[in-house]
Computed example of a mutant assay.
Amino acid sequence: MIVNNSLPSHAECSNSLKNVLDALYVLNGKWKLALILYLMRSPKRFNEIQADVTGISAKILAKELKDLELNGFITRTVYSTTPVSIIYEATDYAHSLKSVLGELSAWGEHHREKIKESMRRGA
């Protein structure tokens, strides 16, 4: 219920929707936010990421990392060692999602509890 607040204008709603759709377009898919969150903790090699992020194939991981790099969320640094080492790291831009990810995590926890409660009542 809205009290003492005016409804947003059509233009405000349209702009807000456009912004959300733009964000979802860039962060779409099952893995992008998980990979950003994972790489915020520390830089990792490809094999470390694949071992720790369960359920992602090498092909999908490579595609998602490339997309994240193209959109400025991660950097890919190649070290000319033998064998070549490639390290992936979250950028400062990726860290700008920290509050969004925190809110999304809290909402996910709340939703999971709501579903559990709903199942207990239905059982």
Rank of each mutant, 00 (worst) to 15 (best):
I2G: 00
I2R: 10
I2S: 11
I2P: 00
V3Y: 08
V3K: 12
V3Q: 07
N4E: 13
N4V: 09
L7C: 01
P8G: 06
P8S: 09
S9E: 10
H10V: 13
H10Q: 13
A11S: 11
A11T: 09
E12C: 04
E12H: 05
C13L: 14
C13T: 03
N15H: 07
S16G: 15
L17E: 03
K18M: 14
K18H: 11
K18P: 00
V20Q: 08
D22N: 14
D22C: 07
L24Q: 11
L24W: 09
Y25S: 15
V26Y: 09
V26Q: 08
V26F: 04
V26M: 03
L27K: 03
L27V: 09
L27E: 03
N28W: 00
G29D: 07
G29C: 05
K32H: 08
K32C: 07
A34G: 00
A34F: 02
A34I: 13
A34P: 00
L35P: 10
I36D: 04
L37Q: 06
L37E: 12
L37K: 13
L37A: 13
L37C: 04
L37P: 00
Y38S: 14
L39C: 06
M40R: 11
R41C: 01
R41H: 12
S42D: 14
P43C: 02
P43A: 12
R45S: 12
R45P: 01
R45L: 12
N47F: 04
N47H: 06
E48A: 11
I49K: 02
A51H: 06
D52V: 02
D52M: 04
V53I: 15
G55Y: 00
G55T: 08
L61Q: 06
A62T: 13
K63P: 00
E64H: 03
E64W: 05
L65P: 03
K66E: 15
K66S: 14
K66A: 14
D67I: 06
D67K: 04
L68T: 07
L68W: 09
L68I: 12
L70M: 12
L70A: 14
L70H: 12
N71H: 15
N71W: 05
G72Y: 01
F73Y: 15
F73V: 08
F73A: 05
I74R: 03
I74C: 02
T75I: 11
T75F: 02
T75M: 02
T75H: 04
T75N: 10
T77R: 11
Y79R: 06
Y79P: 00
Y79T: 02
T81A: 11
P83Y: 08
P83I: 10
I86P: 01
I86N: 05
E89G: 01
E89A: 13
S96A: 07
S96M: 06
L97P: 02
S99R: 07
S99C: 01
S99L: 07
S99M: 10
L101H: 01
G102V: 01
G102L: 09
G102I: 05
G102R: 06
E103K: 07
S105P: 00
S105K: 14
A106D: 06
A106N: 07
W107M: 05
W107A: 12
G108Y: 04
E109A: 08
E109G: 02
H110V: 04
R112Y: 04
E113H: 09
I115L: 14
I115A: 04
K116E: 10
M119D: 11
R120H: 07
R120W: 06
R121C: 02
A123T: 08
A123R: 10
A123Y: 09
